[in-house]
Design a protein around this nucleic acid. Structure first.
Lengths: 146, 146
DNA sequence: TTATATGCAAACAATTTGCATCCTG
DNA sequence: CAGGATGCAAATTGTTTGCATATAA
């Protein structure tokens, strides 16, 4: 039985547990996906209409610095946030519809090692982002061009 | 003898060639590196002090949509721009000093193929970003912790 | 009780845009 | 000469911050 995001956070640092933080953590955890601050805010407001966007950002930073949440720049201008789980999963972003899917990159581990030696770098993170068009969008594009 | 960025751009679309565009293209090409709009602006002003940041952004977009320049988000908030050359070169960013070095990712081509089949995606781009600490910064960090 | 978290509004930084003017083709 | 390009300033967008108030521990 895996711990909730919040339980892990509490474990890490004995900080205050507020309804707002509970709510945001729950949303991140349940939705799983790659939510923007704004999307989280919209969802959270359904349960607490007074919750401010500032609090969303503050909570995300709080979760981020403690290493429980990852901040990604998948497309466009805004950040997206996801609960950290397995390392090594990466993202494919559809340029047509914005959909993001995850995949596991078997090759990434290799890249790690190759470079450490070559440049004397100590690698702490690998981000692989593929962009392209999903099956749907390929079809749609094809039709539009007719 | 390879063509200048601007010559390629003219070839692509018969658009207007202005001193500002010439200057910005030259800077991108000569500096090679990963310049932010602001850095380009600063450099360009040494030769044309009236050149506006807005024009830098407009020119970068113009070069980007024609596929001659790549827009990257390497670290922090701002975009960085580089002239497109070989596909397949990727970036390592030092979290200590911000230095960016490039490397060629032999594994990337494989990733391409693997996924096309698996998800029906047509992959158009692969971005691999490694973050970590360069040799210098590892040393420095070590000293500070003493 | 008391420090920490929140909400709100204002501040910021990066980027974009409206518009009058300029200049390339 | 005409329409696209520029400069400037104002607008937008995403994110952060200051401060008075509310609240978890």
């Amino acid at each position: 039985m895996t711990k909730t995001l919040l339980e892990r956070k509490i474990q890490v640092a004995g900080e205050r547990i507020t309804p707002q933080r509970k709510l945001i953590a729950a949303i991140l955890q349940e939705q799983g996906g790659h939510l923007s601050a704004d999307e989280i805010h919209r969802l959270a407001r359904r349960q607490n209409p007074r919750l401010s966007l500032a609090t969303v950002y503050r909570t995300l930073r709080w979760l981020k610095v403690s290493g429980l949440v990852r901040e990604l720049r998948l497309n466009g201008e805004r950040h997206h946030y996801e609960v950290k789980r397995d390392e090594g999963h990466q993202h494919i972003v559809c340029l047509g519809c914005g959909r993001v899917i995850e995949f596991n990159c078997g090759h990434c581990a290799n890249v790690h090692g190759d470079l450490a030696d070559q440049y004397g770098f100590r690698i702490t993170g690998v981000r692989v982002k593929l962009v392209g068009y999903c099956a749907n969008c390929q079809a749609r594009k094809h039709n539009e061009t007719q």
